[in-house]
């Protein structure tokens, strides 16, 4: 266990040292907040609902913290499978998949915390009061961090699909778009029609993203319990898939490289 903790720590420090990368993500986050704040202001003014941008911008901030903080673990895993790097590690006394996952988690944590602190300050400046009570903030922050961890696992699971696909680029993009639509990554699902929400409920995106982030403007202990329960269930399913795919992969490793 110590070796994974060491990997997590090294990866976190590396991500912290890669300032250009962190600034790039922050720049993108600020641009998103800036654009959508204005969009919701315009829509709010047209509909006489001036609270609209305050609610939805804080929602967007937490959604983007989850989505943007995740490193491109899918691409690195895919490349490792294809170029034989995985074959090199498979004989080492460490799980290759867990190693890459833990590295991605370390990198994600650095971005998540930085975006959380600076993004919250920027959003506070734009909107004034947040739509949640400050005493709920640590719980919301922790829940979003856990969702970000699930997001990393999901990304790694996509990388493992390199076992069956010649390229995962479009699959990754598709998953990103599903996060935005079925997970309410940009607009909350509350603006979508009921039939669409009913479909979204059967996907992991609904609870990993929407239910968790919704706590920002609709916090209740009941909503929290539902989010925790559903997230745990989906986490088990994705973990089972990764165990299965990784098992298949290690059996075929001699075909791919080394």
């Amino acid at each position: 266990m110590n070796k994974y903790a060491a990997l997590y720590s090294v990866s976190l420090k590396q991500a912290w040292a890669a300032k250009a990368s962190l600034y790039g993500r922050l720049f993108f986050l600020f641009i998103l907040i800036f654009i959508y704040n204005h969009l919701w202001e315009v829509i709010g003014a047209e509909n006489n609902s001036l609270e609209l941008n305050r609610t939805y911008i804080w929602y967007l901030l937490f959604a983007e913290m989850i989505i943007l903080s995740s490193p491109r673990a899918d691409r690195s895993l895919f490349n490792d499978i294809r170029d034989g790097t995985m074959a090199y590690y498979v004989g080492k006394p460490i799980s290759f998949f867990l190693m890459r996952c833990v590295e991605a988690l370390g990198s994600m944590t650095a971005s998540f915390v930085l975006m959380g602190v600076l993004g919250s300050l920027a959003t506070l400046l734009l909107t004034g009061e947040p739509p949640f009570l400050w005493r709920h903030f640590p719980i919301i922050f922790l829940m979003c961090y856990l969702s970000s961890c699930f997001n990393v696992l999901l990304t790694c699971a996509v990388g493992l699909c390199g076992l069956w696909l010649a390229s995962i680029r479009t699959l990754s993009m598709l998953i990103e778009r599903l996060v935005f639509t079925l997970g309410g990554g940009i607009f909350p699902l509350s603006i979508y029609p009921d039939w669409f929400i009913d479909i979204a409920k059967y996907t992991p995106f609904y609870s990993f993203y929407y239910l968790t982030i919704k706590l920002v403007y609709d916090f209740s202990w009941e909503n929290l319990a539902v989010a925790v329960t559903l997230n745990s269930g989906w986490l088990c399913l994705i973990a089972l898939f990764t165990i299965f795919a990784y098992g298949r992969l290690t059996k075929r490793i001699n075909i791919y490289g080394g």
Binding site: T170, M173, L174, R177, F180, T181
Partner: peptide, 28 residues
């Protein structure tokens, strides 16, 4: 398959905006 997935990807984004315009009618 990649071309089709790209289209699906694009239309899922367009769908989001279609929903918004359905709700709000017009924006500015």
């Amino acid at each position: 398959v990649n071309v089709l997935m790209m289209m699906l990807n694009n239309f899922s984004y367009i769908f989001m905006w279609w929903i918004l315009f359905q709700n709000k009618g017009s924006i500015n």
